[in-house]
């Protein structure tokens, strides 16, 4: 564990240094992400000022759904950014070098290129989350605890999806944006799952499972999620992670180096 922390820190330091080589590009990315975030907030505020509710959620609740989505999305982007660089590593054969290093190739492919831009964005996001918790009169420590637990579950599910994307890149080089498909699927969680019509709502909530990742934490926080669904979320996450690990191991057995 200590070795992995040390390796992670070295890679993280190098990754941040590399990103900061073009500071103006980091600034442009940051401005762009803030612009996207801001326009969604403006849209929600304008819309809810007219309609008062969206799928029976108030303005503050709807904003909290969006903030929670943004928090989970930024956390995932910060931690698992290296996944975006994995397919080129397979194509040009760099993955061979991952395999001969004395630490897990999965760790190398997943977590060794954190994104400094999303890390910066996390700071105001945490502030906004706390602010809206106060606005929503959330003071029950149990609900806050379950909210944090479900965000952890969302990260586990996301980890499983990222492992599946890595495995897919080993199996086939035909798909060059599988990770963006994951992002677009989870992007449907910017708003509560209740906006979708059945059967799409059920598929998104329980199978894909955008609802578990993005909506369950907020629903638990405002006290409308049953304990059974909290248990379902936890069991689902760990089964998915277990399955993803199996698929990753199988994909490694199928790997044939491209470098030669």
């Amino acid at each position: 564990m200590k070795k992995y922390l040390k390796v992670w820190w070295i890679f993280t330091f190098n990754s941040f240094q590399s990103q900061l080589l073009t500071r103006w590009a980091v600034l442009l990315f940051l401005i762009s992400k803030l612009l996207r975030f801001f326009i969604f907030v403006v849209f929600i505020v304008l819309l809810l000022n007219k309609t008062n509710t969206l799928a029976s959620y108030t303005l503050n609740q709807t904003l909290f759904f969006f903030l929670t989505f943004s928090l989970i999305d930024s956390l995932v982007q910060t931690i698992f950014r290296e996944v975006y660089r994995f397919r080129p590593a397979i194509i040009n054969g760099t993955f061979d070098f991952y395999l001969i290093k004395p630490f897990s190739p999965l760790f190398r492919a997943l977590a060794t290129g954190p994104d400094i831009i999303d890390l910066i964005l996390l700071v105001p996001l945490f502030g906004a989350i706390v602010y809206f918790m106060i606005q929503l009169n959330i003071s029950d420590p149990l609900r806050v605890g379950i909210y944090i637990f479900l965000i952890f579950i969302a990260l586990i599910i996301s980890l499983a999806f990222h492992i599946l994307v890595l495995s897919l890149a080993v199996f086939t080089t035909e798909i060059d944006h599988a990770i963006l498909v994951y992002r677009d699927i989870t992007g449907m969680g910017r708003f509560p799952m209740d906006i979708y019509r059945e059967p799409l709502r059920g598929i998104l909530t329980y199978l894909l499972p955008v609802g578990i990742m993005m909506s369950f934490p907020v629903q638990a926080l405002i006290g409308i999620l049953s304990p059974v669904l909290i248990l379902y979320a936890a069991v689902f996450a760990f089964i998915l992670l277990f399955a993803a690990m199996k698929v990753w191991n199988i994909s490694l057995q199928h790997y044939s180096s491209a470098s030669s």
Binding site: L54, I185, M188, F191
Partner: peptide
């Protein structure tokens, strides 16, 4: 898959307004 992504982006906007 690229087209699938654009359909997903469309569905989000569609269902917000539909709701």
């Amino acid at each position: 898959l690229w087209r699938f992504r654009t359909v997903l982006q469309f569905l989000l906007v569609y269902f917000v307004w539909w709701t």
